[in-house]
Nucleic acid binder design. Sequence first.
DNA 1: GTCTATATGTGGATAGAC
DNA 2: GTCTATCCACATATAGAC
Lengths: 188, 188
Amino acid sequence: MPTDTKSALLMTAERAARTRGFDGFSYADLAESVGIRKASVHHHFPTKAALSVALMHRYHADKEAACARVDAAEPTGGARLLALINLYREALDGGKSLCLCVSFSTSRESLPSEVTAQIGRFRMMMIGWLEATFEVGRCDGTIAGVEDPAAEAAATLPLLEGAQLAARAAENPAIFECGLKLLRQRLT
Amino acid sequence: MPTDTKSALLMTAERAARTRGFDGFSYADLAESVGIRKASVHHHFPTKAALSVALMHRYHADKEAACARVDAAEPTGGARLLALINLYREALDGGKSLCLCVSFSTSRESLPSEVTAQIGRFRMMMIGWLEATFEVGRCDGTIAGVEDPAAEAAATLPLLEGAQLAARAAENPAIFECGLKLLRQRLT
DNA sequence: GTCTATATGTGGATAGAC
DNA sequence: GTCTATCCACATATAGAC
């Protein structure tokens, strides 16, 4: 059996939000992509606000699972951080898209307050993972020059997100690489 | 004599774009703020695309001048970089607004390609200034640990922009401070 | 330069039949 | 669950008078 309609809508909506922004797609767009009518989209997600909450919820769970997989696959702090950088590069999709967190952060006014709260929780989760990763890297020596893991974590997430935003604005992934060069040089 | 209508429109539009995004304000909003009618706004800026170009043009010139003033006022690299950080914090306006470059970067789909090009030129200008500043700081010893001024510059602009974006998303300026803590500790 | 009036399109959302 | 049909609000933009 093919993917059910609700999942197809979530997938299509996430891609659209990440490439064109939350205001950049409409129920009409989703309907056409999935092959149903506008009214049917409203059956699955009564309002666009409800859709945004569902998207962010799924995104948080997905990324948290991805970080756990990185921890399981990579023993060193340096390798883990490199894996996260790679995830952000992949999300950039050659300069055409952003991660959902950055995309939603830029659409603040159009989103319900619940999504604002979800964004905050997502960033806290990511910074927590980064802090633990820098701590591991400090101990095993695979990340150079770490003195304050919490401060490193608080700086690394905005760097990743800002580099992604700049690269997408120019539709040029090289900008992402330039921004991350310094950090990458610290990894063994 | 009071500010002329065109300047008033640019000022109002920039504030609106920075707090609510380019898609977050309409000609009706501008008209009401300035005290004229929608059709009169079109007299000054025929299309919203033309308005966006004018905004970005003015913004580039303003920021370039601000950097020049910093250079004139501060002799050391560390003091100059600190002054730039302060400019980005002020643009955050307590967590309510972004700098125009970040705001426009997030509205890519709604903007004419000329603005995309302007954004690219703006970032090149800023990275050039940052590279020169890191070089000065490296020589005079007021920025610690500088080995590659170009890489530092390429990392610092996305950090500033990403930290601003995250702080605005949560409407919490403390997030900006946390992100910049590490960099600030390197300044004398 | 500013106005009234209007054209035209599109957005999110709902009612009610099948 | 999906459809047709429709509502209403608001967006950008234009025509033409003053």
